[in-house]
């Protein structure tokens, strides 16, 4: 069987899987960004409780593996009476995990904004919230975009693990096709190429575009 025949026969399943992967990726990314922002700001907070919660979240999720977290959420959480379907469990686990890494990027970027910017906005009698929203965050945002580019690729790769709790994503379809055809090189190779194309031709160019746009809007082009 030629590779074209293989694609003709299984192409539909790869497309279905890719769409699920894309959905997992987008939902997990939104969750990770939100959590990163919240936990990053909380870690910088003067309130010891807020700070403690953030540090615990960050250290816990960075200190253990995504796969462990995923299985724990999937198998153990129901014992607490909390039940999500597997699709939801999947992107929540990925989002929680990468959000913890993102929180450190947010914190680092905010701290990298020069002290003079805080003093200048303070001298303009801005409220702390306004200071953060209008002066600090926009600058921090530009500074943290390049490392976020790498993190988002890690997030995309992380979504492949949801196949292990039977979410029918790209990885899952590849395993199914491998199981029914025994054409492992084609089955897994095709999935690898799709992930690569997704990362290099969609995600990375988008992040670059975002970086450029933000820099231009900050007058730093």
């Amino acid at each position: 069987m030629s590779y074209l025949d293989f694609l003709a026969e299984h192409g539909g399943r790869y497309i279905d899987g890719t769409l699920i992967t894309a959905a997992q990726f987008l939902l997990a990314a939104v969750l990770a960004i939100l959590l990163a922002l919240i936990a990053g700001l909380m870690k910088l907070s003067a309130n010891p409780i807020a700070k403690g919660v953030a540090v615990t979240y960050i250290e816990f999720f960075r200190g253990t593996s995504l796969l462990v977290q995923l299985f724990w959420l999937f198998f153990v959480l129901p014992l607490f009476g909390i039940t999500f379907d597997k699709f939801t469990t999947g992107f929540i686990a990925v989002g929680l995990n990468l959000g913890a890494y993102g929180a450190e990027l947010v914190r680092g970027a905010i701290q990298s904004v020069p002290k003079g910017q805080w003093e200048a906005s303070y001298a303009l009698s801005m409220s702390p919230a306004t200071q953060m929203r209008r002066i600090i965050l926009p600058q921090a945002f530009v500074a943290m975009l390049p490392p976020w580019g790498n993190l988002i690729i890690e997030l995309l790769k992380g979504t492949a693990l949801v196949s292990l709790i039977a979410v029918s994503d790209l990885m899952f379809e590849a395993r199914q096709i491998n199981g029914s055809t025994y054409l492992s090189a084609q089955a897994f190779g095709t999935a690898l190429v799709i992930y690569y194309v997704f990362a290099r031709l969609l995600v990375t160019p988008f992040m670059r575009w975002l970086e450029r746009t933000m820099r231009r809007r900050m007058g730093r082009a």
Binding site: A160, L161, N178, A185, G189, Y195, Y196
Partner: peptide, 14 residues
């Protein structure tokens, strides 16, 4: 830019 878990399967099964 591709998932490690997929690479593990690839190496093992190919």
């Amino acid at each position: 830019s591709t998932p490690l878990v997929l690479q593990i399967f690839f190496v093992f099964y190919v």
